[in-house]
Write a protein that binds this DNA or RNA. Structure first.
Lengths: 335, 335
DNA sequence: GAGACGGGGTGACACGTTTTAATAACCTGC
DNA sequence: GCAGGTTATTAAAACGTGTCACCCCGTCTC
């Protein structure tokens, strides 16, 4: 047991190893009767193909690499689940890399991907530097950018329109009658934060307001609940709280919400609050949180299919930049 | 570019391919000067070892498989992060499998692991059936059970003591003066739920109470926030709410908390509430949630090291069943 | 100074598949 | 009945690395 190869199967089925390989990879080339015998032998002997040998000879593996910024973030978890399912359906496995925001760790991860000659890579780049990715292309490894539009046309990407999301959130607050919006966002370097803020500005402008006076931006040091709490304390100390708050993240929003409720502020009566991401916990908080939903699972799923499509036929493949539209979810916090 | 192998390196360094391989795998066998030349050639040519060729020849890969029940659960995410880091440090990659509780999907995952001849497998089994795992052993693939004690001595396992955790939670509620505890738990088939409940019983017994009267168990259909809300509605309808509630899960607890607060119940004044897992959101809820913390990251980390230790020296390796002790985290909900 | 020793390096083979060119068998239409 | 074509199968040659037996040459021992 354990060391049954393609030869043993061939012997048992009374054919040559080449035929067994054909049954495995291009069954249509083999006569039905022969195929049947081979399949039975495979089953009876418990043959499992040796992936490495296959990869070595065929020149490409059945593994894709998935590198995410923060595996602890429910959004990326959703992406990973979608990618894993889609890959599984297409006969591929997924190696996981968690860059944790560190370019060094990301580079290590990509190196490991290259070493295993993965079929392709799904990545949410941690920085703006594209060089590490170009290195992969040298090995003929396809790349699909996740949650960020492609840098240039020769690439696929699957992302969610953060500008539209920001616009949706701020627009919703304005629709409820707010004239001024406080925007709680994350570090300036994070692109998605910048885009969401830009969206908010656009919403204000199309409502005839001047973003310079009607939008107050507060920058949190991190996108965590704790940071949200700190920001909220600051807001309360500095006088009357704003009538409407848009947080770049549900974690921030939950932190803000907690402090507001503890201070006796009525949400949404005194302050309307909306987050972003629509993580599961948004619906479960004391006052359920309005949010902007992103199709995380589908993001991972579509990206994987796109990637494998590119790998299957690099020449005939047309690079696509897919951008999903986010969705407003209204709950009690703006209800 | 892209197709530089061990030979090209050998040529550039003026040595034989065998020596390059030695530099890569047993550097101590190569003289310092030669080694230096080879290392430089590797760097200059941008050589990246072909993992599949290596695996094929050496007979074992540098990949481990990680199969979890639910990648969406923050607890398992923590485990995955720990495993990925530990594996990376030891030069190994991680393939991810998400069984989503389905034995069929788990079997597919394990089959994929076998096909890639992973070095070893980390798994939180979805059921009690051990046969799929025995299949892996036939290929010499090591297995470490995660979050569940080993079925028998010939296996490693890394888990957290759920009985102790249940005891800790219930004991804490009793220490605050409660005489009766309501336990909200998940499906009867889930082992961790059974163990946590058993722990609660033990706590009551050692406080001199009769578990049959002092413990009221309510079973939720799932371990989600929504299910927690339903349970809480039921509790409120059926008369005076219990003085103390222990939920088998933070998700359940958050759902319960939300309903209680909305109904005007004072937490912890009227009802003390404690959850389990200590997910990040527990600290961020309107009334921050007491919980039982499990070292998820360390769990993944230790399990990985144990696994690779076993793979490195199967003969000299002593199987260990490690059980971590959970930790009580007191916050406002029982403060 | 002959033989044993050992560090440092070499070269060829094997790992289990995929693939290609070639062969064998079988039709089709004249 | 035979050329030409189609289909089903085979044999053998790779793929890039790790390993093992062997060789070379300077050192130590008696």
């Amino acid at each position: 047991m354990g060391d049954v190869g393609i030869r043993q199967v061939a012997l048992a089925a009374g054919v040559s190893p080449g035929t067994v390989s054909n049954v495995l990879n291009r069954p249509e080339r083999v006569a039905a009767g022969t195929r049947e015998r081979v399949v039975r032998a495979v089953r009876e002997l418990g043959f499992v193909r040796h992936g490495s040998a296959s990869t070595l000879r065929a020149g490409h593996s059945r593994i894709i690499g998935l590198s995410v910024i923060d595996i602890g973030n429910p959004f990326f978890t959703g992406v990973a689940a979608g990618a894993e399912d889609a890959a599984g359906e297409l006969g591929h496995a997924v190696i996981l890399g968690n860059s944790a925001g560190s370019p060094a760790k990301e580079e290590r991860t990509l190196r490991a991907f290259a070493e295993h000659r993965v079929r392709g890579v799904l990545i949410t780049p941690s920085g703006e530097d594209t060089r590490p990715l170009d290195g992969l292309r040298a090995y003929g490894i396809g790349v699909v950018l996740l949650d960020r539009p492609a840098y240039r046309p020769g690439q696929c990407s699957v992302s969610v329109d953060d500008v539209a999301g920001g616009r949706l959130a701020a627009g919703h607050l304005l629709g409820r009658g707010a004239r001024r919006v406080c925007h709680v966002t994350g570090p300036a370097g994070v692109r998605r934060c910048r885009d969401r803020e830009r969206g908010a500005r656009l919403a204000l402008a199309s409502a005839g307001l001047d973003p310079r006076t009607a939008l107050r931006t507060v920058r949190a040091p991190a996108m965590t609940a704790r940071a949200g709490q700190e920001v909220a304390h600051g807001l309360l100390r500095s006088g009357r709280p704003p009538e409407a708050i848009f947080c770049a993240n549900d974690m921030l929003a939950l932190g803000v919400l907690r402090v507001l409720l503890q201070a006796g502020v009525d949400v949404p009566g005194d302050v309307a609050l909306i987050g972003y991401d629509d993580i599961d916990f948004a619906a479960a908080s004391a006052v359920s949180l309005s949010s902007i939903r992103q199709p995380a699972y589908r993001l991972g799923q579509i990206a994987t299919r796109l990637l494998l499509d590119e790998c299957a036929d690099p020449a005939g493949h047309a690079h696509r930049q897919i951008m999903f539209q986010p969705e407003l979810v209204v709950r009690e916090s703006t209800g």
